[in-house]
Simulated assay, not measured.
Amino acid sequence: MVEHDSLPLDTIFHALGDATRRAMLGELAAAPRSVGELAEPFAMSLAAASKHIKVLEKAGLVRREVRGRTHMCSLDPAPLMTADQWLGVYRRFWTGRLDTLEQLLRAEDAPRPPRAVFDQSGSS
Rank of each mutant, 00 (worst) to 15 (best):
S124F: 06
G88K: 07
D10W: 08
S123T: 10
S74C: 07
T100M: 01
R92A: 11
E27D: 15
F13R: 05
Q103T: 09
A107K: 04
T100C: 03
V89T: 14
A29R: 11
Q103R: 08
T100Q: 10
T100L: 04
W86P: 02
A23H: 11
S6Y: 12
Y90G: 08
E57Y: 03
A23P: 02
R67M: 09
P113S: 08
P8G: 02
A19E: 11
L80T: 11
D119R: 05
F13N: 04
A59P: 15
F118H: 00
A19K: 09
C73I: 02
A31I: 00
G96F: 14
G26T: 07
R67E: 15
S6L: 08
A31C: 14
A110V: 00
E108H: 02
H14S: 13
L105G: 02
R22D: 00
L98E: 09
F13E: 13
R106V: 09
D18Y: 10
L25Y: 00
K58T: 12
P113V: 10
V35G: 09
K54D: 06
L28Q: 02
Q103D: 12
A47K: 11
R22A: 04
L104T: 04
M24V: 09
S6V: 12
R92Y: 12
Q120M: 06
P114W: 03
T20Q: 11
A31Y: 06
E40W: 13
L46K: 02
P32G: 10
Q85G: 06
A78H: 12
A107E: 12
R112F: 03
G60S: 06
R21A: 03
R97I: 01
T82V: 12
V66T: 13
K51N: 15
D99P: 03
Y90V: 06
E27N: 13
D84L: 14
E3L: 08
M72N: 13
C73Y: 00
R67V: 12
P41T: 11
V117I: 09
A48V: 04
S74R: 15
S123N: 03
L101T: 05
Q120R: 12
A29C: 13
L104A: 09
L9H: 05
R115S: 08
A110W: 00
L38Q: 00
R63Y: 13
K58V: 06
S123C: 07
